[in-house]
């Protein structure tokens, strides 16, 4: 098992804000089951503030913990503040992630940003944005590692 920090283990075992918001104002979905991670973040917005946030995640321990952490970080924050939170900041708030997990399983802030984008898109009358299928670690295949 990867060496996870106590904070990661805490968020994995006791994830905060799990679930869905049925009347969400914005939904961001990111990932790809082939890679092993899908994150879906729901936000409820009032007066440009994130009044409520929930998530659903398919993925490893790091994926669950980063999703949980990002919801905790942005609850009650303004959209502007939430947009500034990066994947790196989420990892840092968890006392770091194993290097191998930094790319593939650390996308929770991106998913949150998509939820905000979705909210803005709907508000502007442009409808919902599409979910984003990403697999950015595909290049780290066996062939490169086996004879490194």
């Amino acid at each position: 098992m990867p060496v996870y920090s106590e904070k990661v283990m805490d968020h994995f075992q006791h994830p905060r804000n799990v679930g869905e918001i049925t009347d969400a104002d914005g939904i961001g979905e990111l990932g790809n089951p082939t890679c092993g991670d899908i994150m879906k973040i729901y936000i409820k917005v009032k007066d440009d503030k994130i009044e409520d946030v929930k998530f659903k995640t398919f993925g490893c321990g790091a994926a669950v913990a980063t999703s949980s952490m990002v919801t905790e970080l942005v609850k009650g924050k303004t959209l502007e503040e939430a947009e500034k939170i990066s994947n790196a900041a989420v990892a840092e708030a968890l006392d770091g992630l194993p290097p191998v997990k930094m790319h593939c399983s650390n996308l929770a802030a991106d998913a949150l940003h998509l939820a905000i984008e979705d909210y803005k898109s709907v508000k502007a009358g442009k409808g919902h944005i599409a979910k984003v299928e990403t697999c950015d670690h595909e290049h780290e295949g066996l062939d490169e590692l086996e004879h490194a």
């Binding site: 098992m1 092993g36 993925g59 490893c60 994926a63």
Partner: peptide, 22 residues
Amino acid sequence: EGESILMWLNNSGIMVASGSAC
């Protein structure tokens, strides 16, 4: 996903492996 299952089982004292990417 396998790693999550593995971690929860590990929490229950059961050691397994998985073929998941993670």
